[in-house]
Amino acid sequence: MHLSTEFRILAASDVHADAAARKAEGWRYVQMLAVNNEDSVDVVYSYMKDGLLDNAVVEALPRDARLASITDVYLEAFVCENEIHDLFGIPFDGLAIDFLGNFYRLSTESPMTIISPEKLAEQEKQRKLAEKKAKAEAAKTAKAAGEAASATDAKADAAALDAEMEAKLAAMPPEKAAKVRAAMEAKVKKQAEDGRDA
């Protein structure tokens, strides 16, 4: 038997029904955890059966939200539910062994939801780096667009000059036009050879 891990999204309203279904199917409760976001909390429920570690994620739970306790299904979840309540401030309805916020002796309420100054500084640093990178990208794109536009203009100017010269040549007597054409070709060839030598 090999271990495999899966993550899936679970609606907050389905937490209890999902736990009951898992229990009926013989899944073992593994753990619960919470992840703090800027203005919400994710809660992850893990179960295991036949080497499959299944992680059901309740995403973006508002800070004032409540969850249904699964301790009537899996009593052993009381440790994690009390912990999440004390550290993240998410209350659980119907918690079998409820320490009413006294599971841990804490000096700060919901300490895991407080973003530390170090993390804020790192976030600010990352934001500035992203802004700088975006600016550099934008400047690079603008420069490339400008160069492309000027190249197009140069090509258009050259085409206009060619058309003007062709009109003049057409107005000349054929012998003179042939001499001028040969002189122009020789000039272009010489310029090309000079460019190679350089």
Binding site: Q31, V35, E76, K119, E122
Partner: peptide, 23 residues
């Protein structure tokens, strides 16, 4: 869980004793 920086967004350990308290 990562967040794009060298610091992790979340690290969690559920220990065997925590799981065995009910037992």
């Amino acid at each position: 869980q990562g967040n794009g920086t060298k610091f992790l967004e979340r690290m969690r350990m559920r220990t065997p004793t925590s799981q065995n308290l009910a037992g």
